[in-house]
Design a protein around this nucleic acid. Structure first.
Lengths: 130, 130
DNA sequence: TTTAATGCAAATACTTTGCAGGAAA
DNA sequence: TTTCCTGCAAAGTATTTGCATTAAA
């Protein structure tokens, strides 16, 4: 935390800030490689882990066990995810900011970010289910 | 969906309903084995998948990529999770029910359940960070 | 020179899939 | 008999770790 950021951390932080979407470690690895700016996969994971602990980076776990990383500066982004087909629809609403402040006080917990995801059946899968 | 539940699905559904907490597939496997009611790991995963699609079971992904399953009848349970030490504190509050109904209407999406998790630093890790 | 960061490869852990045997209809 | 379920073992995937190398201080 008091630690100086490494070069890799700074590179990744910069990329995530430019990019306006969440990206997986694997994808980051592939993209960097294609751009001839390769970075070892282990380094990518280690950097993301460090940035996460510093609160620079948010993580969202997909139902398949893959982690998606994005800059903490990114706006809240939540989703409706279909448990059947996996389709994920981004939504704009987010009703939890007040609660966040409240939790920081009652639990003396410094909240970096939150994840809010809805799971169920998309309209297509509801039809297919009949 | 129109499918009849298998024996395994019914067994697992029953267990999850009794149990008042979320459990991983691996733990379920171990517990059943110890209770001399073994079930193959593949069957456990397949049953959980089916129950999930039917909306009988909720899933929450842990930051380590492990999935925690619980009965859909279970009450909402959300957490404050420390990005540093991994400690997870259950919280009671949940401000998203109205939104859920709203989303069902605007997106024609049948919401089974949602996950809401807060990430940051617990009080201890805040101290350690200085 | 001393310390810390990096990359590669091996190891880990969870989950999924292929397939043969077995139970139910 | 026919269909579906189940278990085992093998494969797949994301992630972590050990260690030798390299870069920075």
């Amino acid at each position: 935390m008091t630690n100086n950021p490494t070069r890799s951390q700074m590179r990744i932080d910069r990329i995530l800030k430019r990019l306006n979407r969440a990206i997986s470690a694997q994808e980051l690895y592939t993209e960097l490689r294609q751009a001839n700016q390769s970075m070892g996969l282990a380094t990518i994971y280690r950097s993301l882990e460090a940035l996460k602990i510093q609160g620079q980076v948010q993580v969202r776990m997909l139902p398949n066990g893959e982690a998606l990383y994005s800059s903490a500066q990114q706006q809240d982004q939540h989703h409706l995810t279909c448990v059947n087909c996996g389709t994920s629809i981004p939504i704009d609403e987010c009703p939890v900011h007040n609660l966040e402040t409240e939790l920081e006080n009652t639990h003396k917990f410094k909240v970096y970010y939150h994840t809010l995801e809805f799971f169920g059946l998309c309209s297509l899968c509801q039809l297919a289910a009949e």
